[in-house]
Computed example of a mutant assay.
Amino acid sequence: MFVVPVNPIHQFKGCDLLSLNVFLAVAAHASFREAGKELGITASAVSHSIKVLEQRLSVRLLNRTTRSVSLTDAGERLAATLRPALSSVADALQEIDSLGGIPSGTVRINSSEGAIRLVLQPVLARFLREHPQVHLDIVCDGKLSDIVAHGFDAGIRLAEAVPQDMVSIRVGAPVRFAAVASPGYFAARGRPAVPQDLHGHDCIRFRFDSGAIYRWEFERHGNAETVNVNGPLTLTDQPLMVDAAIDGIGIAFVPDHLAANALSDGRLERVLEAWCPAYPGLCLYYPGHRHVSSALRALIAMLREALQNDPQHESA
């Protein structure tokens, strides 16, 4: 049985916070390689750090095979104790940092590629120029990862997908989807009048990073309809879906800002417009129990300013 030493300071003499953070990263990812990517060190350095930690504790923390890494019972108990403890240490350091008045430090953000391009990219250059002591570590991820478990300070996703226990701040204008295809496609195949008509059309499907296929969602006068469309092409990139629709492959269902240029110059046309209402836009979110660093506060302020200046912004 794993027993915490009576004198932990003596036991951990020479063991800095890095080795404990390495252990928690391995516990979160179940992988030396992925833990190393998160921390910016090699997989061999991760392995060495874990080995030294286990020697100091005189207990095995991880079960290792050629294909997997998992926590032992002792590892599970240590991870459960360390997570809140190190989180408190990080919060304390961030709070002291914020007293200096100058935003600094690293902010780790998890977001989809589309959200990064729509919300973060327009302000990145200005933000980093105005806050040279801040480092942004932005991870593109379409899997809706648990930001707490994976060590992120904040995430960005559509409002409806933000976990209820998070603090959510609106940073994007309302999002409206558009069902679009080329004039040539509609001339050859006709136009769907209601969502269920899509079953008779070639549709360009979207696959999430998780592997799931997106089911097209429509609503009119409070009546919601979901259509599991079929077609000759499935993509994981929405701009490519727009290109495919322009090429006449079929009907795409994408955020309308992606199709705006092609709609304005006539390369694409809308259908089912009355069935495509606007939805609450993108939100930045973070755990409510954590101290918000000065760097993250500065980023939130700039994103809010950008939203206020967005011509598509609608006051709640």
Rank of each mutant, 00 (worst) to 15 (best):
N7E: 10
K13I: 02
V22S: 12
H29K: 12
A30H: 14
F32T: 03
E38P: 04
G40I: 06
I41S: 03
S49H: 12
L57A: 07
R64V: 15
L71D: 08
D73P: 00
D73Y: 07
A74C: 12
G75V: 04
A80Y: 09
A80M: 06
P84V: 06
A90M: 12
D91M: 13
A92L: 11
E95T: 08
D97F: 06
G100H: 12
G100F: 14
I109H: 14
S111R: 07
G114D: 03
L120D: 02
Q121V: 15
R126L: 12
F127P: 04
H135D: 10
D137E: 11
V139D: 14
K143E: 02
D146Q: 09
G151D: 02
D153P: 09
A154D: 04
G155C: 15
D165N: 11
S168R: 01
R170T: 06
V171S: 04
A179V: 07
R189K: 13
P192S: 13
V194E: 14
L198F: 01
Y214R: 10
R215K: 08
E219Q: 10
R220L: 14
N228L: 13
P232N: 13
L235F: 04
A245W: 05
D256M: 15
L258S: 08
N261Y: 06
A262D: 02
P277S: 06
P280M: 00
L284I: 11
L284A: 01
V292W: 09
R297N: 12
A298R: 08
L299N: 04
M302G: 03
R304Y: 08
S315Q: 13
